[in-house]
Amino acid sequence: MTKSPLPAPGDLCQPEPRRAGPRGEHIIDAPADDDELQQVHAWLAAQPIAVLLRTAVDDAVRYVLDGARTWRFDLTSDKVDSDERSSVGTKLQYHVIDHLKLLKEPPLDTTIAGIPVEIKGTIGKTWMIPREGQCEITLMVQIDAGRHQFRTLLMRTHRAWLTGGEGNRDGKRSPRADAVKQYAIEVVPWSDLPPEPLRNLSPAQLLEVFGPYGLRRRLIALFGYLPEKVIPRSSIETVGAGLKDPTRRAREAKPHVMKEHGLVVLVGTWHVELDAAAQLGHDLSNGAWVAVPPAKLESHGFKPDVFIR
Rank of each mutant, 00 (worst) to 15 (best):
E132R: 12
H26Q: 11
I137W: 00
L284A: 13
F223S: 01
V272W: 02
L198K: 12
G133F: 03
A184E: 05
A42Y: 01
R18I: 08
T70C: 11
H41W: 04
S86W: 04
D305N: 10
A145S: 13
L198Y: 04
R18Y: 01
S4E: 15
Q93I: 08
D178F: 02
D35G: 02
S285N: 05
R309A: 06
L102F: 02
G89E: 08
D34G: 04
G10T: 11
L284R: 13
G21S: 14
S234C: 02
R131W: 04
A241D: 01
Y63V: 14
E186T: 10
A50P: 00
M155F: 02
V141D: 00
V306D: 13
V272N: 05
I220E: 04
V187T: 01
I119Q: 02
G10P: 09
P246Q: 06
V209G: 08
D74S: 08
D98A: 14
W161A: 07
E273C: 10
W270Q: 12
R72C: 11
D109P: 05
D178M: 07
R217C: 01
M1Y: 14
L153G: 00
Q182F: 02
I129F: 00
D34M: 07
P130Y: 00
T90C: 06
L44A: 03
D283G: 06
T138M: 01
L266G: 11
L53G: 05
P293Q: 06
R18Q: 11
H148M: 04
P195A: 11
I308W: 13
R131C: 07
